[in-house]
Nucleic acid binder design. Structure first.
Lengths: 341, 341
DNA sequence: AAGGGATGCGCAAACGATTTCGCTTAAAGT
DNA sequence: ACTTTAAGCGAAATCGTTTGCGCATCCCTT
């Protein structure tokens, strides 16, 4: 049995309440008593029981992180680890703890979330994705618990805090980057558009084409899901009578994958086709050739979201702010000006 | 104020204790009462307060995961996310929660761990690395809390549960794989040898050389740390008068990195030099060329470690078991038989 | 009809903190 | 010298559960 506040109190000849006040360094206790009590705590090896405190204070000092299906994507993509890193950094600094969902299916994850909030295990949550028809966010808004989503929330944005990039713009810039290099036929490969990021980037891509008076070629626009192999979609696009010379892809992994598929077809990057990807995770620079990538500052995304969340937890504000993290194009070697023939 | 067990009790005309027993589905309560109580719980929207339960039961149903410095390595390397995935899978199945450390320096992480165990926030821990002179493991053994380390623990192994690969052997096999292909000059690049994995793999590498009557060339053995650039070490090795034709590297990232550096020097893989790496994370197959890699079954590593831990938590055994996860060479395109001249 | 299990629930004491009041005691004001 | 006032601390309630023990009630025995 561990030593409790009462044991300390007895040993120090004070009341438990006094010990408690010493712990929280209350100004109502004299320095003398504090010293005495602290000494006893030290001697007895006292340690605060977190749960007991939580029970009465009703604040867990813990935030929950909900990821998307860990099986498929979340933990394979360096994205999640990186936002986690950002979140983690802030949490540590603010002395908050992190608890993550363990579910693998959407439903299981949802149940995890329910348990977290109903069981009062967390003070707030960060939802690391934004997806159409997802039950998590609606549940959270109606539960009233503070939370923030990384990405642009679907629906009534002013009731939901969020931290996001301006993905439409970023995608537009990425596409225009290729256009500026002389590419007139640029393709787009993204995640399924249920994910808001993918959708936004796709519209940014189309916007760029439109603004530059380029035709939007539906055959150039592909979205990936687990069922369809990258190789097939690359084949489909590159075997077109009039294949693209540039690709905008929504993440670095897809970029690597594309690189690989093109290599199999003996298509050279950047000589034959250029590639620009998103996220600028560490693998972008490790690719051969290193990928030009839009840095979405994932770490910051995580850091800021934790910051917003904890602010909100500490004093719930009327208005739910949303912050936009800027993006930067990081040029490497996967893009090349189109050759004039 | 949320609805408590007492509210339910009042509404259902039973005692709080009865409600509690209904929750745990005790056989001492009649089906009739159970139905009645459950109905009331449903109607009132009752949800168990996790902390209150923890306080009395003394079991948090939560395990802590300690990672190595998140800043530098942990979350950049797909290794950690992947073991997390394995851990997560088992935890979900066993209804355990996961809480991760947030510290970034070794010292901060240590403090996190102390808080977790002293504050009774977790029932057990998984230490996702094994490093020399680390304070975490010693602290855990003397605290008496159940824990398991992923990797081979330093020191008295029979007091510590662990889940690991046979890294010496795996490295020997990897090296011999190259030797079998005719390579006589094979180099080794690994993490700093404070990390047990790196050390083990290095000795496996040397063992292979010895067993095959090959000279151990110190200039071929390199270890990486943050301060030294990959490029430099590659230069050092390849600019040797008698450069190696094969590389054993201790992880896929280093493999990618090596690939990149070689490309800069216009050295072709696998034509000029062969590479075999460790872990077989997803990036191994996305490399150009795809890397031949030793699959260490990271997911299993995580899964098994969680399994051991939870078993131990449920009934602490006298002897601390340690399990070895087999490794498999996954051949891809980064190795080639040496050309006979 | 009395004794003897089962069976079904309730009482009340934990669990380890925090916190609201109120009680001393001593210093200060008049 | 007597009231005020503030400083320093303690008593006890509280947070929401679980659980050991005990008390009825009911059905069987004999």
């Amino acid at each position: 049995m561990a030593v409790t506040i009462k044991d300390v109190a007895r040993e120090a000849n004070v009341a438990p309440s006094t010990v408690s006040r010493v712990i929280s360094d209350s100004p109502r206790i004299s320095e003398k008593t504090k010293r005495k009590v602290r000494k006893v705590m030290e001697e007895m090896g006292y340690h605060l029981n977190h749960n007991a405190r939580v029970l009465v204070q009703k604040s867990t000092q813990t935030i929950g992180i909900v990821m998307k299906n860990s099986t498929s994507a979340s933990l394979h993509d360096p994205f999640f680890p990186e936002v986690l890193r950002g979140i983690s950094a802030l949490c540590h600094q603010q002395e908050y703890n992190i608890s993550i969902t363990t579910g693998e299916s959407e439903e299981a994850i949802f149940q995890d979330v329910v348990k977290m909030v109903q069981g009062k295990r967390v003070d707030g949550l960060i939802v690391s994705y934004s997806k159409k028809d997802d039950k998590v966010v609606p549940f959270l808004v109606q539960s009233g618990i503070p939370f923030v989503v990384v990405g642009k929330p679907i629906g009534k944005a002013n009731e939901i805090m969020s931290v996001d990039n301006d993905n439409i713009r970023a995608a537009r810039e990425a596409t225009e980057f290729l256009i500026q290099l002389g590419h007139k036929k640029v393709a787009f490969i993204g995640e399924q558009p249920q994910f808001e990021v993918a959708a936004a980037r796709r519209t940014g891509y189309m916007e760029a084409l439109r603004l530059n008076d380029l035709e939007i070629e539906p055959a150039y626009i592909k979205s990936l899901d687990k069922t369809v192999l990258m190789k097939e979609t690359v084949d489909e696009v590159m075997d077109l009578p009039n294949p693209p010379t540039g690709f905008v892809v929504t993440d670095d992994i897809t970029g690597l994958n594309l690189l690989l598929c093109l290599r199999e077809k003996n298509i050279k990057v950047p000589d034959d086709v250029s590639i620009i990807s998103f996220n600028n995770t560490f693998i972008a620079q490790l690719a051969t050739p290193p990928l030009t990538s839009i840095d979405t500052q994932i770490y910051q995304l995580g850091y800021e979201s934790a910051k917003c969340l904890i602010e909100e937890i500490k004093n719930p504000s009327m208005f739910k702010k949303s912050v936009i993290i800027p993006t930067i194009i990081v040029e490497r070697e996967s893009c090349m000006a189109i050759k004039v023939k």
